[in-house]
Nucleic acid binder design. Structure first.
Lengths: 176, 176
DNA sequence: ACTATAAACTAATACCATTAGTTAGGCAAG
DNA sequence: CTTGCCTAACTAATGGTATTAGTTTATAGT
């Protein structure tokens, strides 16, 4: 066999840098192949289809997001630190963040949930309440990012201030 | 001229029912034209391109969402009622909800923001704080819906219970 | 009835993902 | 060292997408 110069991770990395530099919609078989100086059908020797490539991208992008967020739980304000890092990652790398969304079940999807759980640790919530709180906080972060990138909060009120206030509301709500 | 049997709203409505019945990804020039028993290029006599059709869809879908949510502010628990109605609309009509997202600036986009503001009315927030709270609550609702339909909260913990708890956290946070 | 307008059409271009079938390079066995 | 197999790459083709150019034709107003 011709030496497998082309690995799954090489394809995934190329697709990710495509998403990062030219947006998630630029992730096409044709563009990936062009970047690798091969023809599109060759990609099918390594992945079943585009969807499978996007799954692999999601896993890798989630790892990047995880690595960026890791450590924020050891600060004085874990939830605020996590929120700021999360929003900053998504705003700075919209293509990467978009890549991370499709996969909901991999190794790093769980790791990200654990990271949110760690940030909520101080509030000593019981099982069910913890799950509700995780869902709520994660929803808030994703919604904040998603509304902002797709629709955009129109008013010229500072985004950072909104995030701080909103995390404050959530934290006070957990306390009482 | 051949009688304009085909109006902008007729096209928009057809596209919306396509999104509702077969998903937002089924909204293509070919499918819209097929539903109307015309050929795709004819659509360009009424809209500049597909994006413009989707903008019109967003406006109409936002109106439907607004009409569904209107009235919830006159209940005993406006925020919870609004949240439940919002999540219910999005889960029951995912194609319609997806259609509503692209447009961030129309008449009904503002009406929806006012609806959220009304639900927060009881907390008597000042200007800036009100805007932060609106953004936070809207983010939570959209994030909740979006994570659920695209990734899906995996654990078999009741969604309705999560929503109630999460709205409760937010309300308590506003109080203190 | 005639003409101008515009809504529909056909045909074409340039993308997209995907599949079938072919070529050719390198590894392993003889 | 040669032979043969495996497989990664290719070419060619299919059918999908949006969009544009140019043409036909029906109708509304004069």
């Amino acid at each position: 066999m011709p030496r497998m110069q082309l690995t799954k991770t090489a394809i995934t990395d190329t697709a990710l840098s495509l998403a990062d530099q030219h947006g998630y919609e630029a992730v096409t078989m044709a563009n990936i192949a062009r970047s690798l100086t091969i023809k599109p059908p060759s990609l099918y020797n390594h992945f079943k289809n585009l969807e499978e490539i996007k799954q692999a991208m999601a896993e890798a992008a989630q790892k990047q997001l995880y690595d960026t967020l890791k450590g924020t739980e050891q600060t004085s304000q874990p939830m605020l630190s996590l929120a700021k890092a999360y929003v900053n990652f998504a705003s700075s790398n919209p293509g990467l963040y978009a890549s991370s969304l499709p996969g909901g079940n991999g190794e790093y999807a769980n790791a990200l949930v654990r990271l949110v759980a760690d940030a909520l640790q101080a509030y000593k919530l019981e099982n069910e309440k913890m799950i509700h709180a995780i869902r709520g906080f994660r929803s808030m972060l994703h919604g904040f990012v998603d509304l902002n990138t797709h629709a955009g909060f129109k008013l010229e009120v500072d985004l950072e201030a909104s995030l701080e206030e909103v995390v404050g509301i959530f934290e006070r709500g957990l306390q009482s």
